[in-house]
Design a protein around this nucleic acid. Structure first.
Lengths: 193, 193
DNA sequence: GTTAGTGGAGAACGCTCGTTCTCCACGACG
DNA sequence: CGTCGTGGAGAACGAGCGTTCTCCACTAAC
């Protein structure tokens, strides 16, 4: 197994275990068992557990935002794209093993003791917020709306994780629709032609 | 120091440390140091650390909901009470040492490994949700609104904790105002008299 | 065939921490 | 005055875990 493949296996195992059970609850031995990569090699790839955690959050950030963007961009209507964010949340919440947002959970676990984890959570949420702004910009709607949608989406992630209520995403989408409608009223679309 | 006073001191220390730094990051020795209660006595009051965590979350649940209710009930207007929830969030977010919601953080840390903590987080959020329903009921507004407000409030707690943006509560209040307005439009207040 | 190098398996080390134990000071009672 | 019980301080124990080390099998070059 070459270096890249080993790295991927380790990160796959880390993501499954850290996300599913929490970071502190998972030992390096378990990462080894699940990844099939020896402890020696593991420490050659990631010098410390902290580094592995960092790489896990980093890789998940890229894939999470890519998956969201791919779903949203399958919709052509600018306002429809905004709603599509919440459709995607619903898909995500329904995935087996869903356990809330990895960054919210990591922040709760390590935000107070690890500046790195706190910064990664902050960056991830800022990136998500900026993405929502590109969507409201694209629909010629005020950026305030993006901020409101961010709060709704974050609340939905938390609530879906803790309450395990499958209706949470639909609730969030409904609220997003109402906010979008309010925003449209204050700034109607530019006249066609 | 009698049993009750010792118990209070221990819970005060536990709340300060667990909330401020995370549960797993704080050892029983530190609880002893800060509370001034000997380890022996501490274990007489709480047989295990798990029990202490349980008692911490339990007591904080009661005080958090009481503080919220006291602020909300200082307002007489039924719709004003709904907005007052978000005013109180702003006060809370501004308190020194604010670090997000204790239950969201605990759930992120221990939700996957402790059924007790997961259940306490769930109960706390359900109680908050029911409280919001009493407020929408009181204003003769649909319960859907309460669900939407819950998501906004949860999102605000998470975002304020992670992003440390002091404008978060105001954003949430503005969004709540828009949702309230939408809801009022669909179900106008009963005619006076 | 011998040897040097690589990598795997897992034992070992050192630290942290939850929990228990030891020892001692002190006050109450005979 | 002696002794017994209570409670405090903190040492000690045992488990878990991050990290390192040891040992060995295997391969390739000469």
């Amino acid at each position: 197994m070459d270096r890249e493949a080993a790295r991927d296996h380790v990160l796959d195992a880390a993501e499954e275990l850290f996300y599913g059970r929490g970071i502190q609850a998972v030992g390096m031995d378990e990462i080894r068992s699940l990844s099939g990569v020896s402890l020696k090699r593991l420490y050659q790839l990631f010098a410390t557990k902290d580094r592995l955690v960092e790489a896990y959050l980093e890789r998940r950030d890229l894939s999470w935002r890519r998956r969201l963007a791919e779903h949203v961009e399958s919709c052509d209507d600018p306002e429809g794209r905004i709603i599509a964010v919440f459709d995607w949340l619903e898909l995500w919440f329904g995935e087996p093993g869903f356990r809330g947002c990895a960054w919210i959970n990591s922040y709760g676990e390590l935000g107070a003791t690890s500046a790195t984890v706190a910064a990664q959570a902050r960056r991830h949420k800022q990136a998500f917020g900026r993405y929502l702004e590109t969507l409201t910009d694209g629909a010629h709607l005020p950026r305030d709306l993006a901020g409101h949608l961010l709060l709704l989406a974050e609340g939905a992630m938390v609530t879906a994780g803790i309450l395990r209520d499958p209706g949470t995403a639909a609730q969030a989408r409904a609220a997003a629709g109402l906010l979008l409608e309010s925003a449209r009223r204050t700034r109607p679309p530019a006249p066609a032609g």
